[in-house]
Simulated scan of single mutants.
Amino acid sequence: MILDQPIKKWFVTKQGKDSNFKSFMKSISWRIVGTLDTMVISFFVTGQLVMAISIGSIEVVTKIILYYFHERAWESATKIEKDEPKKEFA
């Protein structure tokens, strides 16, 4: 694929780690799925479409922000330090 490598540069850093942009895009796509789920559940619980949409519209913003910071914390916690010896597998 001709566009594979240029597009990959948007999502992975030179060290092979997920980029901030990739974390942000993952949080957006996951929130779309999560918000639809929240709206469906809210509709079944309340029986009111307007209430379900209101609940979904509030939680989509807060959970995008929370997921982004969660993703960055995981990336930071799992990064390899420069001075840390690399493990080799036989």
Rank of each mutant, 00 (worst) to 15 (best):
M1I: 01
L3S: 05
Q5H: 10
Q5N: 13
Q5V: 10
Q5D: 10
P6A: 02
P6D: 04
P6Y: 00
I7L: 13
I7C: 10
I7V: 13
K9I: 00
W10R: 10
F11H: 06
F11S: 05
K14Y: 06
K14R: 07
K14D: 13
Q15G: 08
G16Y: 02
G16M: 01
K17V: 06
D18C: 07
S19Y: 04
N20Q: 09
N20C: 12
F21C: 04
F21L: 15
S23I: 06
S23Q: 13
M25R: 05
K26F: 09
K26H: 08
S27Q: 01
S27R: 03
I28Y: 02
W30D: 12
W30Y: 15
T35L: 01
L36D: 01
L36N: 04
L36R: 04
D37E: 11
T38G: 05
M39W: 03
V40L: 15
V40M: 15
I41W: 05
S42V: 01
F43I: 12
F43R: 02
F44E: 05
T46Y: 06
Q48K: 09
Q48A: 07
Q48N: 14
L49Q: 08
L49M: 09
M51K: 14
M51G: 04
M51L: 12
A52K: 04
I53V: 15
S54E: 12
S54N: 14
S54G: 11
S54P: 03
S57H: 03
I58C: 13
V61P: 11
V61W: 13
V61Y: 11
V61K: 13
V61A: 13
V61C: 12
T62Q: 14
I64L: 09
I65K: 10
I65Q: 12
I65A: 07
F69Q: 04
H70Y: 10
H70M: 10
E71N: 05
R72A: 08
E75G: 03
S76G: 02
T78C: 07
K79R: 15
I80G: 01
K82W: 10
D83N: 14
D83K: 10
E84A: 10
P85R: 11
P85A: 03
K86I: 02
K86F: 06
K87F: 08
E88R: 00
E88S: 07
F89S: 09
F89Q: 11
F89D: 05
A90L: 10
A90M: 12
A90W: 08
A90V: 07
